[in-house]
């Protein structure tokens, strides 16, 4: 328990520090940080539209952050969630547009299932390359994100194009109910929450979850006790991909109603940030995802109300993550010494 309190304290401290550095940057360009942050807060929460936009932005982040975290639990650094969101989205769009022969409830299911299947298959590639041939998954997933982006971009400007000036697909025939109009907040948020709860339970309460954690901590031990570390690694990556696929499907069915070129840019990397900041702790990740979506949706309001560019928010989050990765920062000198000694001993 003490550990939990400590982690929370650490995260809050890091947050304050990151906001502080952000304030310095705002001062540096001659604006008032307090005004900027107030505008930011208002931009995220003030009124139905803004709150709804924040919630709509939170939905995919919740899924992509957990997607990154679950892969991390198995020892993978899956930067590829973004590509999986794109491919999940395009698959959902394709099924949602073309498979109208299915009854509506089945069509919903088909959209989700298709998105999950394609995204999982995409995640399988870097996972298998890493597990069987030791190909660094950070490199492959990053590069494959670009490939995924171009594939979908080709499809919506070519074969699946709606023929409009913007590259986008025809509207899908099934959509998720938007409950806070005019914002695009939709029932997808409840699907996302349910999925995340299931994943967290799975990780902690089932033997599959145990295997994922074992493989993540120590693959050589896993193999020795009879857990196929490669297979578990790949399955965790595929699960991660599926979560990305669900996010893509919700975006297409719930937010846009069609596949919009480039729609997922930043969703994967922001999810990764949310997860990394809390060291892939599954219980904290959703809160961090929420915090980041508040920053994101508030940023526009800030840019309009004050002269502070919205890119500042990204700068703050980046500073946040950099400080958060530093394991031994914020420890009192004495404590750090003790930890260092502990390290020497095991060395």
């Amino acid at each position: 328990m003490n550990q939990t309190v400590n982690s929370i304290r650490r995260i809050l401290l890091t947050m304050v520090l990151a906001l502080g550095i952000g304030a310095l940057l705002i001062l540096a360009i001659g604006e008032n940080p307090v005004d900027a942050y107030v505008a930011l807060f208002k931009g995220a929460f003030d009124g139905k539209l803004r709150l709804g936009t924040t919630l709509a932005g939170f939905t995919p982040l919740l899924l992509t952050s957990i997607a990154f975290a679950i892969a991390a639990k198995a020892g993978a650094f899956n930067v590829g969630v973004e590509g999986e969101v794109f491919l999940g989205g395009i698959t959902a769009a394709y099924i949602g547009i073309n498979w109208t022969f299915l009854p509506r409830p089945m069509l919903y299911l088909a959209c989700f299932a298709g998105a999950m299947a394609v995204a999982a298959a995409w995640a399988f590639i870097p996972a298998a390359l890493r597990a069987y041939y030791g190909v660094n998954e950070v490199c492959t997933t990053i590069l494959m994100n670009t490939v995924a982006l171009y594939i979908t971009s080709y499809l919506v400007s070519g074969p699946m194009s709606a023929g409009t000036a913007n590259a986008q697909s025809l509207p899908v025939t099934v959509t998720l109910y938007q409950f806070m109009k005019p914002s695009s907040a939709n029932v997808g948020i409840f699907i996302a929450i349910a999925v995340v709860v299931l994943v967290i339970l799975m990780l902690n309460k089932t033997s599959w979850g145990y295997k994922i954690r074992t493989v993540g901590f120590n693959p050589s031990h896993a193999d020795y006790v009879g857990i196929n570390s490669k297979r578990v690694f790949i399955s965790a990556m595929m699960l991660s991909g599926m979560l990305g696929g669900i996010a893509g499907c919700i975006e297409v069915l719930g937010v846009h109603g069609y596949f919009l070129n480039n729609f997922a840019t930043g969703l994967g990397s922001n999810g990764m940030l949310a997860s990394l900041i809390v060291k892939n702790n599954m219980a904290f990740t959703p809160f961090m995802a929420f915090f980041l979506s508040v920053l994101k949706s508030g940023a526009m309001g800030m840019q309009q109300a004050t002269g502070v560019p919205k890119a500042l928010v990204d700068t703050i989050t980046a500073v946040f993550i950099i400080i958060a990765t530093m394991e031994t920062a914020f420890q009192f000198a004495k404590k750090r010494k003790a930890q260092k000694k502990g390290k020497e001993e095991t060395a």
Binding site: T206, S207, W208, N218, H221, A222, Y224
Partner: peptide, 30 residues
């Protein structure tokens, strides 16, 4: 590196090889 998973508990290490067996798992839950 092999015999133990140092970041897990004594208990989790003790049951590591028979995780899917009867008294340690019920249905799909541990």
């Amino acid at each position: 590196t092999r015999g133990l998973n140092r970041s897990m508990s004594i208990e989790e290490n003790l049951v590591a090889v028979r995780l899917d067996e009867a008294p340690f798992t019920k249905g799909i839950l541990l």
